[in-house]
Amino acid sequence: MPDYRLAKDRAFTILVLALAAAGVAPLAHLLATVAVRGAEAIARAGPGFFTEAPAPPGSRELGGIAPALAGSLLLAGASVAIGVPLATLTAVFMHEFPESRLARAARALAMSLLEIPTVLVGILVYSIIVVPMGRFSLLAGGVALAIVMLPYVATYVERALGQVPRTYREAGLALGMTRAQVVFHVAMGVARRGVLAGFIVGLSKALGETAPLLFTIGGSRAVVQASPLCPGDAVPLLVFQLAQTPYENWRLLAWGASLVLVASVLLVYLAARLLVREVRL
């Protein structure tokens, strides 16, 4: 009976579509809520949202999140500067010497680092950097975020290197290139999209983290700090701390900051996709 089969096919398609929608719905709802409430907050605060510090709690004004934005920028710079080379070199080592005991240990550690609650990373950095320095600093936060992004970047980069065809490497060697030249000029070049995807995943992971910052950056929320050696604020930390208070203007500010956070992570993704063209083999 063709009719019966057609109906069955139709019903199944509808079922699958409905299930897919149900899976995506919470995420869509989340993004929509952040977009609506965040836009409301930014519209009410005006351009001051990006240039001022938060207004006092319970007041009519909103103020802005300038100190947190500045802090997040410095944190991103510091964590990339520390985390990316470390992770890349680890990945190269793991890929080039897969059988060595050290590489196996590194791979196991990277995997387990993914599972460790990031607040522990914050506590570690607190005791090895903040206490000896005698103060909180964005640099300490940058180190904590670098440790958080390390396993993500290392795993992505290693996987990207693994997908470079063997013939390309052999061609490089045949031309008299050293092993290091083959890795950094041939393999990295061919795998650049995957490598960069690793950097982006690491950066966006770091951008959104709150827990490693709780005990490291000090949350200087009233003034914009220009130096990474000073205590500072960060956008996710501001969201976490202000959203917990009962004051409407602070909570609205937290919505606005959430929108900025989500938008900047999406922008980083988009920019990376546009900037790096796919390598066709």
Partner: peptide, 24 residues
């Protein structure tokens, strides 16, 4: 260039109950 001259000379930490009042 930015130096180490941090703008917050004094650092405190603790109670989140006190936080909103302290900011004021």
């Amino acid at each position: 260039v930015a130096g180490t001259g941090c703008k917050a000379a004094i650092q405190g930490s603790g109670s989140s109950f006190l936080y909103p009042q302290m900011e004021v």
